[in-house]
Write a protein that binds this DNA or RNA. Sequence first.
DNA 1: GATGAATGAGATTTCATTCAT
DNA 2: CATGAATGAAATCTCATTCAT
Lengths: 207, 207, 207, 207
Amino acid sequence: MGVKDRKKREKEQRRHQILDAARDLFMHKGYFDVRMDDIATGAEVAIGTLYLYFHNKDEIYATLCEEGLDILNRLIEDAIREEGSFQECLEAIGRSYLGFYMEYGSYYDVLSFVGMGFKQVGLSEELEKKITQKSDAAISKLEFVVKQGMEAGEIAEGDSKEVAFFLWGLLEGLIFIHRRGYMDAWAVDLARTSAVGMEAIYRGISR
Amino acid sequence: MGVKDRKKREKEQRRHQILDAARDLFMHKGYFDVRMDDIATGAEVAIGTLYLYFHNKDEIYATLCEEGLDILNRLIEDAIREEGSFQECLEAIGRSYLGFYMEYGSYYDVLSFVGMGFKQVGLSEELEKKITQKSDAAISKLEFVVKQGMEAGEIAEGDSKEVAFFLWGLLEGLIFIHRRGYMDAWAVDLARTSAVGMEAIYRGISR
Amino acid sequence: MGVKDRKKREKEQRRHQILDAARDLFMHKGYFDVRMDDIATGAEVAIGTLYLYFHNKDEIYATLCEEGLDILNRLIEDAIREEGSFQECLEAIGRSYLGFYMEYGSYYDVLSFVGMGFKQVGLSEELEKKITQKSDAAISKLEFVVKQGMEAGEIAEGDSKEVAFFLWGLLEGLIFIHRRGYMDAWAVDLARTSAVGMEAIYRGISR
Amino acid sequence: MGVKDRKKREKEQRRHQILDAARDLFMHKGYFDVRMDDIATGAEVAIGTLYLYFHNKDEIYATLCEEGLDILNRLIEDAIREEGSFQECLEAIGRSYLGFYMEYGSYYDVLSFVGMGFKQVGLSEELEKKITQKSDAAISKLEFVVKQGMEAGEIAEGDSKEVAFFLWGLLEGLIFIHRRGYMDAWAVDLARTSAVGMEAIYRGISR
DNA sequence: GATGAATGAGATTTCATTCAT
DNA sequence: CATGAATGAAATCTCATTCAT
């Protein structure tokens, strides 16, 4: 009994070791420059062990993508759940998005890579569907918040989808730029710029 | 003499053939899925010939990046040169940026890949410096425009760098999202969303 | 005491389970395409258990070969023991050989593979010796029958070894051809062809 | 012009180098124990070169099979073409078959392996069809000879297919036995045994 | 005695780059 | 200058065997 449990726990642990090592490597070197050898070394297991837990390199990668999206969605949901005005909600979402990027940067990189439209990462259609689904979920939530803001009269009427998209675009774009290193080079702060930008938009669309 | 000229012309032409083939391939298949063989076939030259014109695969790639950035910078300069109010200038820049993405999409993809922050492309530091330089040039121009707008009293005083960055961020983010296919899936128009978003920001920061 | 007996019985049983599973797999998929995992699954034991009963994969294979040869030899002995003329004896041997092939086809395949003359199976010298020994036993018996036939004046004098070999060759060759599927393709019956062929030879060598 | 010709000749030569090395290795070590490395070393080329001439290991193997069958068929045809009595023709065919085995033993091994019914060698259906076709051609020729012998009244009437099969079986079986090393062990000569056996059959079926 | 997770050597194949012609 | 056959390092994945529990 206890033995079985411990074994199961150990297996789970090993799986995590592998995913942790892989995430770290994918983040720093990108999908193509990570060798299965590297992951094995990083996880302190033999190469063969990797294939005991995952079918192939792509599956490791795919698993990381899913994990990342789950975290992101949870963060956004949390941000929305907290009640408050549209403005407060917007701020919360922005903080969540940035928070995900700052705290789970490795996932961000992993996900970006998939999203780039580079088809070489032979992800299964299943995963692609999952990613789209989970991303759609995030957009839906944002649009819902916008709609509520309009209905409450807090912001001007308009195409809620469009508004949701440019809000998302601002966040995504700033992170993208930060990721490339331009903000550090220009001594611009991501959080501040994001806050100021969101506020500008808010003022631009509020009644 | 005429002979020398012709030879030179032919060499230039051959170089273009190679770059054209490479750009097309990199755009459609991504850096890693393009083989030197493919480029040679596409350019209708022998594989060895590629190495007469470029040191290696990365250099071909690097040259394309530079070309792309040159075009982008030229477009932005053109947008700024046309005189007018800050608002008009902003709109012109937005249109230029989007225009670059729409008309020179292949360059955009190529550049995005570099921008991933991943080191996997293995580009030389020299190229990285060049790219940073040329990107910086673009930001400088944008910041300059913002500063002028502030000095002219058209928009509120503030950190011009910050404003420049979130304007850029909005454009970059919207393109990024569009590139991933989400806009098509949600039936949202890139140009319209961009215009509406920019206007919102403008209202948010104008006096 | 009963306990010890039961244990011994269980061990013997387990050994059989393993051999049964292995024979079945080797027959259907060939030596190289059978994994130790497959055998373990088929025998409903853990992979480690295989190594409690056999040193390695080859030993399992070798054991099956021995079993097969033992059966074959027993069948031939039975055929010879029945008294009668040389002709009757010859017919009985032919029927036995074919019977072995038809009823114990899995052993036949297993043995053929060894007989390929290829060293790739990597069997121990010990096994090779055993197989040769047991095959030699079969030939000896056949030669003895031929010699008796000559001495009895039923067939012409001659090199009894040679005669034994071409009798064996006919049987072996027909089975080989049948095994490859040519008889089915040409609608030729193995048993009949063998009988007719043996009879032709008999007539050719009988006084 | 001369240059092109020489290049072509060299390519053909290299192809032969590879096939020669491969045939030798397959003969001595069997399909599975031959590594692409071994073939490359044997042919004195780099590993990559192998893949310039053949798609994969199986294709090398397949090419050897075809070559072997072509040689065999040519030999049989030659044997039949020489006019003469059925008996003479039969002897000629036997000599040819044995000759193929003795002189082109490597091909024999290669072909036997395919014929064993081990499916692991992932030969294309195309090749399998070719092999069947070419083997069928050989059988057809043999049956034709038998039929002529019957019509000429040299041998007794009967099922010509059956007769053809047991003649083939005798040859195939003797070679098979020889290949396994039993003849050497028993100091029996293949050629003699074959000749005596064929003659016995001939006597058995002649009028 | 039984288990099965872990091991890691080793196999096939790819492709950027070179260099003799 | 142009060619393209040859190179060989390197990557992913398999599977017989071991050994701690």
